[in-house]
Design a binder for these strands. Structure first.
Lengths: 143, 143
DNA sequence: GCCATCATGAAAGTGACATTCATTGACATT
DNA sequence: AATGTCAATGAATGTCACTTTCATGATGGC
């Protein structure tokens, strides 16, 4: 899976006439071996320990490239930071966000999606995408 | 309804020992006679034409007061601007957001809410609030 | 190896809040 | 009416999270 995404990214880059660099390889490795929901800042700090010479701007631009290549997705959870989520082949899911520890869980619910379609239909609305986030306390933080 | 909200705000202010001022009255009037989803910037610009002496900071602080008083609610739609929505008495709803014209419609669906509760329960998650937004083309923009 | 491009990173810029602080204004007290 | 008190105001400034610029530094096709 990790290897597959590396290939997707390599293909995307060569197709776009962009170059493979040490930094991009390092950032991709770090991203793929991280949490599923990571902010630029978090990834930057994680990299700094081993690669203090990689700049914030490079992490920022590289994550944008990941998004364009389809291996990452930009997400806003209302804390003022953009997070990047791993994307796996056309899959979609919604989120449970813990307001105490920041932990993010994913879930899917076919019935909810279907009801959304019905709502949209009844208003003549054509759905492009949606977001559903449930905020509260995760099982751990409820103790 | 407009009168009712003015009373709610007046009560909140006197209860908190805060003062009623010309500016706050003007901002409340302008807010109540506006779109249901307004950013600080939009409200500020709308006010400037008639009241060029009201500062951005005052609009900003006054909208926060409205939110505290329960007559407005802060919302993020991912465009980087906080929007304030009119609140009517403990009501909740979700949104259909048109990606072309920016039009925002509201909807409620009891079944979706119930399914969300089930998902949260199954993960031991305690819901505080949620957000559901459907992005796409409104009936008008589909033509 | 040469060189036209692309990539990098330090620094500066941007936009949308959020805060500061000197001044103003509203009411209560002399 | 003048003064005192203290919250409210708004111009200016600060903050934060990006976002862009620009002077180098790398890369990949001949």
């Amino acid at each position: 899976m990790k290897r597959a995404k590396k290939k997707v990214f390599a293909d995307f880059m060569s197709q776009k006439g962009l170059k493979s660099t040490k930094q991009r390889d390092i950032i991709l490795d770090c991203f793929l071996s991280s949490d599923r929901h990571l902010s630029i800042e978090e990834l930057y700090l994680k990299l700094r320990s081993k690669h203090p010479n990689i700049g914030y701007a490079t992490v920022y631009r590289t994550l944008k490239l990941f998004a364009e290549a389809g291996i990452a997705r930009e997400m806003q959870f209302g804390d003022g930071q953009t997070r990047y989520e791993h994307v796996s082949e056309g899959e979609h899911h919604d989120h449970l966000v813990c307001t105490r520890c920041g932990h993010i869980e994913e879930f899917e619910n076919e019935t909810i999606e279907k009801l959304q379609d019905e709502v949209a239909d009844s208003r003549g609305f054509l759905i492009e995408r949606h977001r559903l986030e449930i905020y509260g306390l995760c099982a751990n933080c409820r103790k």
